[in-house]
Design a binder for these strands. Structure first.
Lengths: 311, 311
DNA sequence: CCTGCACATAGAGTGGGCTTATGGGCGTGG
DNA sequence: CCACGCCCATAAGCCCACTCTATGTGCAGG
C-alpha cells in the first residue's frame, strides 16, 4: 500500500479485475430469464438488495447500463443483451468444469465409474456428463483419467464400468465401439514461417523440426511418434495441453494438437494450422468395456449419448 | 443465519459456489505454464503466500489435489491437468467477454468504430477483437449493436468505420463482402415430439406452431418471417438469445436459432435439431462500408481477419 | 384508495483474500 | 562444505466486498 499500483499492459493479467465473477454472471442470466431482479434473487437464494447491488456494481465495473429498471420489472438493455450472451458462454464453460470436477471428486459411492483417456476426458466428457445429468439427475459419476493401458486395467479389474480410449488399437480383452474420429493438426503462431506455407509439410520435415510436446506417455504423442515412423524431437515438454497451446501462441514454436483442443484458437486466428502431406494423423476415439459384458444401466445411458453425438 | 441453509437441487443455482473464481483459475493456468507458484504469483502481481493459499483453497473446494509441490517447483497432478484444461475453456470465454465489454464501453476516442448486427456481435466479434488485439495491441475499438438499418445509418453518417449485417439484402449506399453464411436451425428439447421426427418438418407446420422467439425487430426473426412467407406465431417473446435457449432447454417449446448460437447445446444433446423441408433458412453474413470508401487502417485489419476466418 | 410487487437506500456484521514476516527443504557454485 | 538462491508453508493482522435487515418510493389493479 502507498506504493503505486502496477498495470501489466500486454499480458492477460487481471482478467479477474475486468470480468465479473461467476456469481454475478449467473445473476444476470437469471434476471434476463425471469424479468425481475427480485425473482432472480429468490432463485439464487439471496435477497433482493443483494441482487440489486450486485448488478449495479457489475454495471459500474463494465461501464455500461445492463438492465432497464422499472416499477414493473427489469429488462435488458441492448448492451445488456449482448453482455448476457457473452456471459452465457462463460457460464456454459463453468458448467462443464463443474460436471467434470464433481466426477473427479466423487470417487466412492458412485453408480457409474468411467475411465477415460486425457483427450476425451478434457474435451468430450464434461458435455456428456451434463447431458447425462439432464436425463438421470441422480446418477453419481466418477472419473479416472489415464492412458489406454490404465483404462483397460481398470475395466478388467471391475474398477470401472465404461472406458474411453484414443489409441490406434483396442486393448485385448475389451469390446469397443467407435464413437468419433480425431485428427491431429500441426499448428503455429500466425507469425511463424510455416503459417504462410501453401505446399504441405513433408513427414520428414515435421520429424526433423523440434516441436512443443506434451510429456512422454501422452496418447497424442504416441500417435505422433507412430505417424512419423520414429520419435518426434522435443523443443520443450510441457505438462498439459493448455501449457502447450499457450506456448505456441506466444511464438515458441510449432506443435501437434488434437483438433478438439483447437476450436477457438483456430477460428480466431490465434493459431494457424499447417497442411501436412504424407502423414496419417488421424485416430479413432472408442468406447470400451470388458469383452462380453455389454454395458447396462447408467453405463448404457452414457454410451448411447456418446455414439449419438459422435461425428 | 440460524435458519437452515437451502439447497436448490436440480436447478443450476450455486455454480459460483462450486466453481472457483476467475482469478483462481487464471492463477492455476499460470502455475501450469510457469511451473512454480511463486513465478505465477509474480506474473499476476500478487505475493507467493497469496498464490499458495489460493491454490490450496481451490483444492479444498474441488476436493482434489491439483499441483504436486516440491522444493524445486510445482507440477500439475493428473487431475490438475484435467482441471486446468477445463479452466482454460472458462478463461477463453472470459477473454471474449472482456474484449467485447471493453468495446461496448470505449465509445469515444476509439480508433476503430464498429457497428454490427446482434448475431455477429454476439458470436463472432469477440473472437475477432481478440485476434485484432494480438496483431495491433494499441487499437481501441468501440462497438455498437443494432439492426441493418442502424448499421447503415451509422456508416453513412461517418459514425462508424466498418459494419457487419446479417440481412438478406445489402442496404443501399453500402459496399459489402460476404464473410460467412449462417443457417437457422429449428431446435427443441430432447423430450419434445419433434426431436424424434425423421421426416422433415414442412414450412406450413412450422408456421402454424407457436414458437419461442426473440422480440420483433431481431434479425433472426425477420429472416424467419420471410422464410415462412408470413409471420411466425409467438409462444413467448424473450429479450435475448440466452433466454430463448434456456426456455427451449426447459421444455417450453421449439425455437429457431442461428447455428452460431448452438454449438455446445447440440453436441451435448441438451437441444436437438429438427430437419426442415421446404424452407430456406440461410443467410449471408456481410461486412459493409460506405460505397466507394474501401476500408483502410484498423478497419482494413479487422476486415482481413474476418474474411480469412469465415466459413 | 389500498394492497402487492417492483426497485432503491442505509447501516451493521462477517469472512475471504491480501499483505508482511518468518521458517524449513533442496540445489548449486565458490 | 557452507552459503546463497529458489522453492514452498505457516502465522497474524488488515481491509474490502458482499451480505443481511429494515426501511422508503413508484406504479398497477381491484
Amino acid at each position: 500500500m502507498g506504493v503505486a499500483e502496477q498495470e501489466f499492459p500486454g499480458f492477460s493479467g487481471g482478467l479477474g479485475r475486468r470480468v465479473p465473477e461467476l456469481g454475478a454472471l449467473e445473476l444476470l442470466l437469471a434476471v434476463a430469464r425471469l424479468g425481475s431482479l427480485g425473482r432472480a434473487a429468490r432463485e439464487l437464494g439471496i435477497t433482493q438488495p443483494a441482487a440489486s447491488s450486485r448488478i449495479r456494481s457489475m454495471e459500474r465495473q463494465l461501464g455500461v447500463a445492463l438492465v432497464d429498471r422499472s416499477p414493473t420489472g427489469s429488462r435488458l438493455t441492448d448492451a445488456g443483451a449482448l453482455v448476457t450472451d457473452w456471459a452465457q458462454r462463460i457460464v456454459e464453460a463453468a458448467e462443464a468444469f463443474d460436471a467434470g470436477a464433481q466426477a473427479l471428486r466423487d470417487r466412492r459411492d458412485s453408480r457409474l465409474r468411467v475411465a477415460a483417456s486425457m483427450t476425451i476426458a478434457e474435451y468430450l466428457l464434461p458435455g456428456w456428463l451434463i447431458a447425462l445429468r439432464a436425463q438421470r439427475p441422480d446418477t453419481a459419476v466418477s472419473l479416472l483419467a489415464g492412458n489406454s493401458a490404465v483404462v483397460a486395467e481398470r475395466l478388467l479389474a471391475d474398477e470401472a464400468d465404461l472406458g474411453f480410449v484414443e489409441g490406434l488399437s483396442v486393448p485385448t480383452g475389451l469390446d469397443s465401439a467407435v464413437i468419433a474420429h480425431d485428427r491431429l493438426i500441426v499448428v503455429t503462431a500466425p507469425g511463424h514461417p510455416w503459417a504462410r506455407r501453401r505446399r504441405p509439410l513433408a513427414a520428414a520435415e515435421l520429424a526433423s523440426t523440434p516441436l512443443i510436446l506434451r510429456e512422454k506417455g501422452s496418447g497424442t504423442r504416441q500417435v505422433l511418434d507412430a505417424a512419423l515412423g520414429g520419435l518426434a524431437r522435443p523443443l520443450i515438454e510441457l505438462s498439459s495441453t493448455t501449457a502447450v497451446k499457450a506456448s505456441v501462441v506466444s511464438g515458441a514454436g510449432p506443435a501437434v494438437l488434437s483438433e478438439l483442443a483447437l476450436g477457438e484458437e483456430l477460428s480466431a486466428r490465434r493459431l494457424v494450422s499447417v497442411p501436412v502431406a504424407d502423414v496419417r494423423l488421424s485416430r479413432a476415439l472408442r468406447a470400451v468395456w470388458p469383452a462380453g459384458h455389454r454395458p447396462a444401466g447408467p453405463a448404457r445411458d452414457l454410451l448411447s449419448l456418446t455414439v449419438a453425438s459422435g461425428g
